[in-house]
Design a protein around this nucleic acid. Structure first.
Lengths: 227, 227
DNA sequence: TTCCCACCCGAACGTTCGTTCGGGAGGAGT
DNA sequence: ACTCCTCCCGAACGAACGTTCGGGTGGGAA
């Protein structure tokens, strides 16, 4: 055991693990945790069953790593974007754009995140919980700033939590039904969520440069971050 | 005894099946389909493993019946309520109230509905799909009428579908996080969703009698329907 | 050369799964 | 009396599961 990998949220120094996690996420997204066998993963990745165990110790580890990586990356991506924007409306729009953008590029992994963590040990559940709460807290703050900026009726703590989760609901539920050809582009969806959350369903869509501006920023940061 | 059991849509003439489905839903809501064994269900219901098979033929049947019953009941409940209301805003509010009310009284079953149907045969998937589409279509119509009544920008078909699903997202995502003591009463949540969907998060909550009026109607119809 | 170590494998272990089989208790109908 | 039919059970079946074991590469450091 040379370097003891300071586990700061992510990645032991393996490369094969990346591939295994990708295929695992795909299979689990389709059939769930118990519905996906290690033999499935082995044959999908072109490895032997026992060969997999070089990269992890138990099946549970796979869900754990997918969760840690997913929430860490989502949070980090959001942080990077928010650091470039100051206007509360821009920040809210960017939050939604980033969330949908990240999800659409990592559908399988994100679906695994939604399966929950009840297959993990208590410590790991707590760790994932902490990561999730971190992301939620960031979003909560963005929502809070936005409401304050708009001069709306400032909700109490519970009300703010509810509002944030309603936004999460609109953003996350998508992945149960959305298909671009049947429901319009991802950009349309981002705009719909933003405008509905801000002004309600009936609001007329203002045409401005926000979509372009924020969209380019997020896409740019995504590429930058991938290197 | 005298069974009777109107219950439309559903139910072979068994009574023990009700109990089995209740426990199955509870277990599957916690551990998923593959994570729940028939031995779990047997011990939870106080029956023998083989004794269960008097009430169904395969494990898959359980998911099937939970789905059929759930969507049928939800649809029927909504229909009953809408038949008593004509104002588009009342109807939208009632839709949300009914959805949350029904879910809060059948949490486990509804969680199973969200697990999806990919364990079922193709015919059954199609059948559930039809039931789900029926409910969705009703909601779509209510949303459409509401927007028209408000004189908002009438969205095209795709836009209307997106709007309806956004509403679904807010209503369904709840069940991953909601607890009354941490996030306020169910009534507060209903109001939040209604006002957010109608006017956006910042909108000041109007105080009127809608909550009382529609709430009583739904509760009354629920009791009536249970006999 | 020798040793090490990351990487990979076939074969098997013990367990649990969904399902089946053969049968029994008890009430209703004839 | 006898036959059904509903409801229920213990025991077992074959299959699939997660995991382990013992061993085999092949390249880099000593």
């Amino acid at each position: 055991m040379s370097h003891g990998n300071g586990n700061g949220a992510v990645v032991p120094g393996k490369e094969g693990l990346d591939e295994i996690l990708r295929y695992s996420a795909r299979l689990m997204a389709q059939r769930g945790y118990h519905g996906t066998s290690l033999r499935d993963i082995a044959s999908e990745t072109g490895r032997s069953l026992s060969g997999l165990y070089h990269y992890f110790q138990t099946k549970e580890d796979l869900v754990y790593w997918i969760n840690v990586r997913g929430f860490s990356a989502l949070t980090k991506s959001l942080e990077a974007i928010l650091s470039h924007l100051s206007d509360p409306e821009d920040r809210l729009y960017a939050l939604i754009f980033n969330h949908l953008d990240y999800f659409s590029h990592h559908r399988d992994e994100m679906k695994v995140l939604m399966l929950g963590t009840h297959n993990l040990t208590l410590e790991r559940i707590a760790e994932i919980r902490r990561l999730k709460d971190g992301y939620t807290e960031q979003c909560r703050q963005v929502v809070s700033d936005f409401i304050a900026h708009r001069g709306g009726e400032l909700p109490d703590a519970k009300g703010l939590t509810r509002a944030t989760y309603l936004l999460f609901g609109m953003m996350n539920w998508i992945f149960g039904w959305y298909s671009p050809q049947k429901h319009g582009t991802g950009r349309d969806l981002t705009d719909d969520i933003f405008h509905t959350f801000v002004d309600g369903v009936c609001a007329r869509r203002k045409i401005d440069d926000r979509r372009e501006r924020v969209g380019k920023l997020v896409s740019g940061l995504r590429k930058e971050h991938h290197d």
